[in-house]
Design a protein around this nucleic acid. Structure first.
Length: 588
DNA sequence: GCCGTTTTCGGCCCGACTGTTTTCAGTCG
């Protein structure tokens, strides 16, 4: 785990402990914010502190949300490996209680009561505590106990958050079916799904309709629904299960059409973005809630029949607040309210005109060169790079030198045969553990494009990983570094190199870094990508497709790129054919 | 605990829902 992630964990635990001990909620929030800032930070805090200890506190304080006290704690962690305040809190609150706090419906008050009154110190304790004992607690009746039992059951069955690429099709299916209903005015999904986060907790569907009952009925009786959790006037909650057994909660919200924009904004979040937006509204003597943006700062203007200044569209609300429109993917309270964001168009799916990383039957793909090329052409691409695996990937049927030479020949023939698309002879060459490549330079020079990727030795120490990747970036025949960290979302952390040095080297050597669109990878991830772009790196967004349907994964790459604030020209896949081809040739 | 071209002190988003209650605390997003 990276230093930043480890310190973030310390702050999250301090926040949870403080919450359980009944500390001021703003203090709790402040700790949570520090954890969040640390997770998004691309500067490595260990490096920041070790490089210049006397200036470390000031440097850390320059990050929004980190103050004097937190900066000192971070320094303590780097210098001694622990934070005394953290240790002190852990001695006051049992660690297992954090699992109890994590159960939906159990907040700090309830967890604290369970602990103090019933001696519950872990999830296991809670499970073995009788219903009678639990319901003896204040404000804890039969229904509350039942809900807690169900929540434990659900979290054990459904596990953690679901990858974007699994959740999005489930939501799209629901939206497509609801949109067919009579009286439907608007329907869309909101929440982290609309923001394109790499993992999704639950699905939020928003609807404006003239026939609410029809929508409620269609939603609650949908074939994928296994349980209806709640069915109210404006909100229904269900459990969905897809054909592969993935279980998710989905919430339906029915909102008035005239407040569609305000509601969509509210339910899209993020929470942190909304909070900042409301603060900005107050500063302009306005009041923002899910019913609209109102004049004055009095509470609940909608109840007094006041007409909002803006409500029907998200655009109108940002405009009335004198802010550039913020695309959903950027709403994370990072820097979308700073001068850095001016509302310029972000990259979109239709900007992409080339696929530069894809596999065929020569290695572990399912399509022939021609099938792949025709599929790429059908999508309006002007260029396709065929990049099969190299010899150190026997599990992926990687090509040895002789097979690669024959493959290059076959690609050239296909290129001559098929009109309307340029087919490039390439390779996804392994970056070996020491940073050398899997083919010699003479062979690499015969390829039109070289994507160099790490596949093995993905648990290397950061220092070793940095040197390994730097060596590949500096290699004069390498165009693109494929999935640079080798991480798998939620399953494998991958390499944790000094990203700052990688980005500087990539700029210096004109080497492109990949954003791999496969939803299992999304590598570089959003925060890294943002820093790479700010460092001036060029990016390739590729699908790494092994079959036709995987070319559709491009959308996940685009969502991730938008989260990083990417403009079209920063992505080489958007370049016109001649610009792209001449850049590729510049490395030959 | 953090933050400040109106503040170095005094604020810190807003509303819905639920269950347990006779008026609201706790939790969530």
């Amino acid at each position: 785990m990276s230093a930043n992630a480890q310190v973030a964990e310390v702050f999250d635990q301090m926040a949870a402990a403080l919450e359980l001990l009944g500390a001021n909620r703003f203090r709790v929030n402040a700790h949570e914010k520090v954890a969040r800032v640390l997770r998004d930070l691309t500067d490595d805090v260990r490096a920041v502190v070790e490089e210049n200890p006397p200036a470390a506190v000031a440097r850390l304080r320059s990050f929004d949300g980190i103050g004097e006290s937190s900066a000192k704690k971070i320094c303590e962690w780097v210098e001694t490996g622990s934070v005394p305040e953290h240790q002190k809190l852990l001695s006051q609150v049992p660690l297992g209680l954090f699992e109890v706090l994590a159960i939906p419906g159990v907040g700090p008050k309830a967890a604290k009561l369970m602990w103090e009154e019933l001696g519950i110190e872990s999830l296991e304790d809670l499970k073995t505590t009788s219903d009678e004992a639990l319901s003896s607690l204040p404000r804890m009746g039969k229904k509350s106990v039942e809900k807690i039992r169900q929540a434990i059951d659900f979290s054990e069955k459904s596990g953690d958050r679901v990858p974007l690429g699994v959740a999005r099709p489930m939501a799209q299916k629901l939206v497509a079916e609801l949109s067919k209903l009579d009286g439907m005015q608007q329907v869309d999904f909101a929440g982290s799904l609309r923001r394109g986060k790499e993992t999704i907790g639950d699905i939020d569907i928003l609807v404006a309709t003239t026939d609410a009952e029809a929508v409620r009925e269609a939603f609650c009786s949908h074939p994928d629904v296994t349980q209806v959790l709640a069915r109210g006037e404006t909100k229904c909650s269900v459990r969905l299960e897809n054909e592969r057994g993935v279980v998710m909660q989905a919430d339906l919200r029915i909102v008035p059409e005239e407040a569609w924009g305000a509601a969509l904004m509210y339910f899209t979040g993020s929470k942190e973005h909304n909070v900042r937006l409301r603060e900005i509204a107050i500063g302009k003597d306005r009041h923002l809630n899910e019913y609209g943006l109102f004049s004055g700062t009095a509470e609940r203007p909608q109840d007094r029949g006041e007409t909002p200044v803006a409500a029907a569209s998200e655009e109108s609300i940002y405009q009335a607040l004198e802010l550039p429109f913020v695309p959903p993917e950027m709403r994370e309270d990072r820097d979308e309210f700073s001068d850095r964001w001016n509302g310029e168009a972000l990259i979109s799916l239709s900007d992409v005109k080339a696929e530069l990383h894809a596999h065929t039957t020569a290695s572990d793909g399912r399509l022939s060169i021609e099938e792949l090329a025709k599929e790429a052409r059908r999508r309006g691409f002007h260029t396709l790079a065929v990049t099969d695996h190299s010899k150190s990937q026997p599990i992926a049927n990687g090509l040895d030198e002789d097979r690669l030479l024959a493959h290059i020949d076959a690609i050239r023939k296909a290129d001559a045969k098929i009109d309307g698309i340029r087919i490039l002879a390439g390779s996804e060459v392994d970056i070996l553990a020491d940073g050398s490549l899997d083919y010699d330079d003479e062979l690499l020079a015969q390829l039109d494009i070289v994507v160099a990727s790490p596949h093995a030795a993905l648990r290397q120490e950061p220092v070793v990983a940095t040197e390994r990747l730097l060596r590949a970036i500096r290699h004069p025949l390498v165009h693109i570094i494929g999935h640079p960290t080798g991480r798998i979302v939620g399953r494998r952390e991958g390499l944790s190199p000094d990203t700052k040095r990688l980005y500087e080297a990539a700029v210096e050597h004109d080497t492109v870094l990949e954003l791999n669109s496969n939803w299992n990878r999304l590598d570089l991830r959003d925060a890294h990508l943002r820093a790479a772009l700010q460092a001036g790196c060029k990016i390739a967004i590729d699908t790494d497709a092994h079959d036709t349907w995987q070319l559709d994964h491009l959308v996940y790459g685009i969502l991730t790129a938008r989260r990083a604030g990417m403009r079209p020209e920063q992505c080489i896949n958007t370049w016109p054919a001649d610009k792209l081809h001449s850049w590729l040739e510049s490395k030959r």
